[in-house]
Amino acid sequence: MLTYVPILRAKDGEFDALRHMHDRVARSVMPLLDVQKQPTQTSKAPKSSKTPKSLQDYLSDVASKLADAQNDRPLFVDMFNFGPADKVESGEHVYTYFCGELHAHGMNFHAVVGVDRWSNIEYRAAIGHVLAMNGGKALLRLETEDLEDMSDPTMFDDMLGDVLDQCGLIARNLPVLIDLGDIRNRPIADLLPDVSAALEFLRARGFIQVVIAGSSMPTSINEAVKKHNSAAFLQRGEMILWKTLLASTPGVRVVFGDYGVRSPRSSDAMSPDTNGKIRYTVGNEFLIVRGHSMRIGPKGGQMWGLADYVVKSPQYAKEGFSWGDEMIKRCSEHKIKGNSTQWIAFDTSHHLAAIVAETYEYARTTGGISALNQPV
């Protein structure tokens, strides 16, 4: 049963978190994997003797890793960071090519139809090919700008009608994602009327399943924790927004979504001055424990103290709660240090389990449990 749609980068850290999900968590999580562009070598980085991979080889490798991590569990897949007409070397559209690789691995993938890209004829054709490949399983992705376009209902209805007609989809069976992106500087009081109006707009047109996703995580850890070697709590506005909407939106099943433990605007570029950090999800908040630059001693060894802080805090959920919690405990015992990719995996693993528990408990105690027990 669908409880939670995390929007995750299709990267090694996220793959490890998905691979290690407990079955009780995996049953309630249907992730949306956003495929990232192939990393480019910067002028400051040492030159590699290896020939860069072709885009086809890169996408094939990502698809293979995703298949290994997710197996036959359902997922949504998007290529939001690519252009709507981007192609691989053979001339095939990137989305068709990537989904073809997932299909070859026998994956249960659902297409994501981006309204922001729908005007492009090559994108529309690619979506059509993917829907023919996966049996017509899809998600409609709306962004903040699309919500603004609803102020012209005639124009927006024409676009919706075109999507449904060309894709052979029915509103009642098509889940919608309202992707708010970075909401760190957007007060809940400002978001609520816009999102509520969008939910009513969609309900009136027959849509009954809507995912609300956003992220309060800053792009840099020093925006959340000002001092080195200290800790702070950061409010997760996306969770508070969902809890407010769950009970106030009759006729629509409102599903929680977020961006995991990363900001949608954060960079994947590695820096030797990256601070050690643990992003630990608790009720309505992140507990963020910040260390110092990895250039400064004890370098990676600083993670032992950060993990010990989490384990000794009243917020620690114990090592049996998730694989990530087990790894935090092992780190606190000086058994591992973990690199930046591994800490994305550990933090994400705990986050997925914590969100499933939090959303289920809130819905149970407020009588909104039926909203969580409907599959998309």
Rank of each mutant, 00 (worst) to 15 (best):
M1N: 08
L8P: 11
K11M: 07
D16I: 10
H20K: 15
H20F: 14
M21V: 00
D23T: 02
D23N: 03
L32V: 09
K37I: 02
Q38F: 04
Q41Y: 00
T42Q: 03
A45T: 01
S48K: 11
D57C: 06
L59W: 06
S60H: 14
Q70N: 13
Q70M: 10
D72G: 02
F76T: 04
D78A: 15
F80S: 14
P84D: 09
A85R: 15
D86I: 04
H110A: 12
H110D: 06
V112D: 07
G114T: 00
V115W: 01
E122L: 10
Y123S: 01
R124G: 06
A125K: 12
H129Y: 10
L131T: 05
T144C: 05
D149K: 15
M150E: 07
M155P: 00
D158Y: 03
L174M: 12
P175C: 04
G181Y: 05
I188C: 10
L192H: 02
S196E: 13
A198C: 12
A198F: 11
R205K: 00
F207I: 05
A213W: 02
S215A: 13
S215H: 07
M217H: 03
S220Y: 05
N222Y: 06
K226N: 05
A231W: 14
Q235R: 14
Q235D: 14
W242M: 09
V252I: 15
V254K: 06
V255Y: 09
F256V: 07
Y259Q: 00
R262W: 02
R262D: 03
R262M: 11
S271P: 01
D273S: 13
T274N: 15
Y280M: 09
T281L: 11
N284V: 02
E285Y: 08
H292T: 14
R295Q: 12
G300T: 02
M303S: 01
M303N: 09
K318Q: 11
E319M: 11
G320V: 10
E326M: 14
I328V: 15
A345V: 01
T348A: 08
T359R: 11
Y362V: 03
A363P: 01
N373P: 00
